[in-house]
Amino acid sequence: MRLTILLVEDDEIELLKFKKALNKINSPIKILSAKNGEEAIQLCETSLPNLIFLDLKMPKMNGLEFLSLLKNNEELKSIPAMILTTSNNHNDINNAYKIGIAGYIVKPLRYDAYVAQIKKVIEYWCINELVKR
């Protein structure tokens, strides 16, 4: 089963980092990416990803706005979305959980640590029934 993951992130290097990290995991994963909330919603509707990783700070439509839109959409609201951000601000965390998220990951500084975290998360979702459908 091929996992389709949508990364909503405006920073190119972060996207590269994410892709590189997933390359190190030996499982077939399809990566979709969107630079902001608007693009992301469109992608969700056309491609229906299994998992969404979401940055909070983005131009046009920010992470929380996109999340609200997603959770209010009957077709899309069951897609698990996880926050992948540098912010460990209490308000951000609270607000994200209020709207509905499957996880909140604060990006570690070191690349190695980042890869390790992403790996764990992907592995978790790979054994998850929901994603398998």
């Binding site: 920073d11 290097i13 972060e14 980092k17 700070k57 500084l109 690349y111 980042y114």
Partner: peptide, 13 residues
């Protein structure tokens, strides 16, 4: 927060 993001990119690069 704005400083943290590029710092992570820098670290990765």
């Amino acid at each position: 927060h704005d400083l943290k993001s590029p710092l992570r990119s820098m670290s990765a690069l």
